[in-house]
Design a protein around this nucleic acid. Structure first.
Lengths: 403, 403
DNA sequence: GGAAGTAAATTTAGACTCAAAATAAATATA
DNA sequence: TATATTTATTTTGAGTCTAAATTTACTTCC
């Protein structure tokens, strides 16, 4: 059953326009000559495409043609740039305990954001949907835009999502949500909502603005409270048949791993265990409250033996996880991301050292600089990709000038 | 750096021609109307494409237009079919101890084959290359074709191969080979040789003619002497950055696995161990010789307790391997392939039963019907894919009739 | 201020693609 | 023989691209 191939002449223009847009998004204002060099199209075609895209609202032509850089000989070049004002996208992170929304223009610049913890009363799916909607609206308001400007929404959820964007039903948390978020936001706001696994979005995010920029074979491990991973192979996300690829559940089959808790959780747990003994440790300062992962890392930095021991155990465990991932998938790079990533830098060297003992194909290991926002960055990127792929024929938010 | 996109009008024709060829290869003689239905093209375009392909030698138009099926009303439809005689491809399996070559026409029908074990003297790369060439020539001879007819060669090797077809240097066996097989065959015969990992080819083969037909997320485990796997996700092979994805080396991190020996090897080893004890077992019949895996399976079928115990251990081990694969990649199906697959059917039920204990996302498990030829079948398919993708502009082996 | 130089923009010609509609051909059936 | 049916072929029109020639709008130099 080959898919229908709508190989019309217009397809060519879409291909060309896509190539031009791809280049424009990564660039500031450019001349037609720049675009020609990047795309291989001729001048006539390039100009036709650009004017086409201006007419559709995607590009804007600059007035002050020769206001940049030094003077230049010859006839002044027209300059175009991506029209960031053509609309916005929403990138969301719907976590276990809180919801974050980021508003971005089409160039990927953040215009506003909002983040709120779920309240005790938000138990039913209707309440949760209303809450998610409220956070999105707050983010839009902080960005000074309105719902009509939104061209796409992408939300990361802590559940398997297949490659068609369908959440796969599990016994877990998401059962609470997935009672109609997409149709609800479609009906109430007219938004197209894409759902994706949070770790997969983390991978997209880190590849865009993080440690994995430009790397086509990378696994991003979201390792704060629980372990989850997003796999990119050959530049594409790996979902598996039911969206569970990279989920790492039951990775306890791997010796020395035992469960799928993340770094922050384990640091906290092991600190509590250590405090139940008589060992002298600076961690006792926090005994009245809960010892947080950051405090363990801080104590280790001061040379505290117990904290250092916990770091050793964490490194060993993560090396086993990374080793298994490297054996199965042979990525070029494994990135550790999530809130704990800011502290986890000290784990890199010990993980890398042990890695060769756990896999024949060790990967480079890095920590993501995106910290807590890794999922929302990926969600924005996912929404932008969708808009670019699917909206070349769409009418954009800005009014289109007809000639 | 966006790739150059040569979006010329001719590209459309290539797309259309590719869609038509795709359909033709999977079909017998078809009418233009059939092609229209399958591709979505109009009649005029379809006819133009078909005549184009006839001119290039890819298709043949049948004479007896109305000789098939019952009578039909209306003007007789022209019928076209893939011209299997336009050339052949070679699919090879270069194993540790023997080399197999299969000659196939462009429809994928086997025309001839040859298989020979390496001789004691074949130690240097020059000798091995000469031996491989000899096996290929023998296969061509048995098919009644000559080297000029060969449009592409694909060879499976027991080494990592990256997605560009480059063998990644390792300390292992392939070091003996990869001293110029491709340039040597290019120079001597004019052949384009594609290299690919043998397990990856097994995956292509089983997806084409085996248990995984039409399944887009599948892992094929080559499990006879050693463990190796080929991963298909979303219909595409997963290579990893250096071609080692799915290699399963160091999977001994998984509890209860311990090494990467395959089923046949372990059955043999464990049988030998059992014979060192005093346990009564039918396997003693083979004590003077070596107990082969097939004999263990046969004894188990007779109810022999020791053989049954070995099967239990094999099932447990394979379930752990499959479970780890299923956790990491979430395939729809895991296929066990290779020479031992013919006997391994009895392992399916016990593996499936245990699987749920080793992964949260169990996959269906099957045994490949392709047996020992799974790699060559995949190699043929790989070569066919290459020819179709790359040769639309090539002059084919058959003389082209100019008008 | 005017001529020369330079690079971009535009125009023109040519080739190719496809869809859609109109026309022609071949056959079965009444 | 006439009609219906199905397919084949031809024509028309619109859309795409490249390549080459031409025009335009500047800067620079004299």
């Amino acid at each position: 059953m080959p898919e229908l191939v709508p190989a019309t002449p217009q397809l060519l223009r879409r291909v060309s326009a896509g190539a031009v847009l791809d280049f424009m998004r990564a660039s500031a204002a450019v001349t037609v000559t720049d675009v020609m060099a990047a795309t291989g199209l001729t001048r006539a075609t390039t100009i036709a495409v650009c004017e086409d895209l201006v007419r559709r609202g995607w590009l804007r032509e600059l007035e002050n043609q020769r206001e940049f850089g030094g003077y230049q000989k010859g006839r002044p070049a027209r300059r175009f740039e991506l029209n960031g004002r053509a609309g916005v996208v929403l990138g969301m992170d719907i976590g276990y305990s809180k919801v974050t929304a980021v508003v971005s223009d089409l160039r990927g610049r953040t215009l506003g954001r909002s983040s709120r913890p779920f309240q005790a009363g938000d138990v039913g799916s209707r309440e949760r949907i209303a809450f998610i909607d409220a956070v999105a609206m707050a983010a839009l308001s902080s960005a000074g835009t309105d719902p009509q400007q939104v061209l796409a929404v992408c939300a990361g959820v802590a559940a398997p999502v297949d490659r068609h964007g369908e959440v796969v039903a599990t016994q877990e948390f998401w059962g609470l949500f997935d009672l109609g978020l997409r149709p609800a936001l479609k009906a109430a706001r007219g938004w197209t909502v894409l759902l994706e696994n949070d770790a997969n979005l983390a991978a997209l995010g880190d590849r865009w603005q993080g440690a994995a920029a430009g790397i086509d074979d990378v696994v991003v491990i979201l390792a704060s409270e629980r372990l989850g991973s997003g796999i990119v192979e050959g530049g594409r996300l790996v979902h598996g048949t039911r969206g569970s690829a990279g989920e790492l559940a039951y990775l306890n089959l791997v010796e020395g791993v035992g469960d799928t808790y993340g770094i922050a959780h384990l640091a906290r747990t092991w600190a509590a265990e250590a405090l139940a003994t008589t060992a002298p440790t600076a961690l006792r300062e926090f005994q009245h409250g809960r010892v947080e992962a950051e405090q363990v890392f801080a104590a280790a930095a001061q040379g505290d033996a117990v904290a250092l021991g916990i770091l050793e155990r964490l490194a060993d465990r993560m090396a086993r996880v990374v080793g298994t991932v490297a054996t199965m998938l042979n990525p070029e790079l494994v990135v550790i991301g999530g809130g704990v990533a800011d502290s986890a830098g000290v784990l890199l060297a010990p993980i890398s050292e042990r890695l060769a003992g756990f896999t024949a194909t060790p990967a480079r290991v890095a920590v993501s600089p995106l910290g807590d926002s890794i999922v929302t960055v990926g969600a924005v990127r996912c929404a932008l990709d969708y808009v670019e792929r699917n909206s070349l024929d769409l009418v954009l938010a800005t009014p289109v000038v007809t000639e």
